[in-house]
Structure formats: C-alpha cells, structure tokens
C-alpha cells in the first residue's frame, strides 16, 4: 500500500452530528446490520469501508430512512441527528431526506434539463420565492459541485446527455441544492473513470466546509484520500471506527488489518 497518501487532516470540530446506538437491520429473516454504535461528526468526511455485502450501504441508507422504501426491511435501535430521533413516529421521512441528502452509486439524473434537475429539490420544498432566486440557487449548487463552467451555456440541455463524471457531479449539485446538513454518498465514484473520480474527490473535500459527509467506498485508497474518520464494517458488524490515519497505519482489530492489507475481502 505504498501509493496510499495518508494525510493528517484537521478535524475542524468535534460536534456530533449523527449518533447511532444499537442499530439492527433485518431484510426479511436476514440480519444485515448487527448492533452498530457510531458517532459521526459534523463538518467531517466519514468513510465506511468493508467487503461487499458487509452492510455499509444498508447502514448508510438507515441515516435518511431510504430503507423505508423497501418493504421487507426492518430497522431497530436509535439514530439521532442533532439530538433528534429520526425513527420517531413524529418525524416525516420526506422532511428528513431534504435535510440528509444522498448521492447514489450510479449517476441517476432525471430525464429533464440540467436546470430542472438541480431545481427539482428547491421546487418541491419551496425554497425559492421567485425565478431569480431559483436561478441563484441553481447556479450556486452547480458552482459548488464544480460543474458550472461546463454546463452554464446549456442549462436547458437534457441532464442525461452529459458524460458519466458530469452526471455524477450534476447529481451532487442536485443534492446540494436542497441545502442538506448531511450528505450521504453511496460509492459515488464506482462508475467513474480516474479523472472524474479525482474531480469528485476534490469536490467532497470542499463540501466538508459546510456539511457532514458520509461516503461508502470500496476503494481503500479513496477512503484514505478523502476521509478524516473511517469505519470498517464486516459481516454486518462495525469492527473498528476511528481516525482514518490510525485505521490505515495502526489498526487495532486483526480483521481490519487483514482487510486493508488485502488478506480478506
């Protein structure tokens, strides 16, 4: 693992954004997540790593209740965001998802224009009073997703006509446009080439200024490059969680060491 750049980055704050306690997830009879406790800090990039099927994506989808859309899925335990229990009956999952944005593995722009793709969230949540404000929100979101210069002349072109990397940045812009507090990213670079991946990673680092970012990734190099905290999942258990530098250089659990050195997974 010589090519791994492990940078000591400052963790700007120690405020806990998301606190999960005793989280269990079942798919029908299958126990997918076993008793996971984790504290995710604000304005930090947290990476979830682990072999396929270890439950990292499932756990990520618990954080904005996307698992609610799957009929056979059942979640137990407590997840608090800013001290509020998101599985409380009074919490509207639709409102929650506006606060906890998500970017998916495969770029999934809607079959609409680039502008309408970004304006989708602000429109359904009524974030803009008029067209001028909406224009501003769209422009800011596209700028923050580092794609503004590439698309500013063709905002009315369909979003599906962009290249894969551009589509993924468009999806990030779309998520950013609703002003979320947490941004969940489920393997956002797995369908991208190295150049687009580098652009997205750079973007993630910038997004850290404003959001708490949680990223699921298969690439340990990527986790090392972009995150400050890393959690290693294995067979539905959270094996180890800590500073990214520590996890990669000095793992405590033998399973973590086996995984990052390539012996398992």
């Amino acid at each position: 693992m010589n090519d791994m750049r492990i940078l000591e980055r400052d963790v700007d704050t120690n405020t806990i954004k998301i606190a999960a306690r005793g989280v269990q997830v079942y798919y029908g009879d299958n126990h997918a997540i076993k008793d996971v406790d984790v504290d995710i800090q604000d304005k930090t990039v947290t990476a979830f790593i682990g072999p396929s099927g270890c439950g990292k994506s499932t756990f990520l989808r618990c954080l904005n209740r996307m698992n609610d859309t799957i009929d056979i899925c059942r979640v137990e335990g407590d997840i608090h965001i800013d001290g509020e229990d998101i599985y409380d009956k009074r919490v509207d999952p639709v409102q929650l998802r506006a606060k906890v944005g998500m970017v998916f593995q495969k770029p999934n722009p809607f079959p609409k224009s680039i502008y309408d793709n970004v304006a989708y969230g602000p429109r359904i949540h009524g974030l803009a009073k008029n067209k001028a404000e909406l224009d501003e929100i769209v422009e800011n979101a596209l700028r923050r997703a580092a794609i503004w210069n590439e698309v500013k002349d063709r905002l009315n072109a369909p979003g599906t006509g962009l290249s894969g990397g551009q589509q993924q940045r468009l999806c990030i812009a779309r998520a950013v446009a609703t002003e979320p507090e947490v941004l969940l990213m489920d393997e956002p670079c797995s369908a991208l080439d190295p150049i687009a991946t580098a652009q997205v990673e750079e973007l993630i680092d910038e997004l850290r200024q404003n959001y708490s970012v949680v990223i699921v990734t298969h690439s340990m190099q990527q986790a090392a490059r972009v995150s400050q905290k890393t959690a290693f999942f294995h067979l539905g258990n959270l094996v180890e969680y800590g500073e990214t530098g520590n996890i990669f250089t000095n793992p405590e659990d033998p399973r973590t060491e086996s995984y990052i050195t390539g012996r398992i997974g």
Binding site: K99, P109, F110, Y120, H125
Partner: peptide
C-alpha cells in the same frame, strides 16, 4: 435509481411519480 434519486431529495411518492 430514478425513484431513489427523487426520494433521496425529499420528494413524496406522488411527487416522484408526477415529476
């Protein structure tokens, strides 16, 4: 993935279908 994208932005089911 289209539906997921829309739900992920906080759209309701019927908004997702309509839009």
């Amino acid at each position: 993935s289209m539906r997921d994208g829309s739900f992920g932005l906080g759209a309701t089911h019927s908004e997702t279908i309509r839009q």
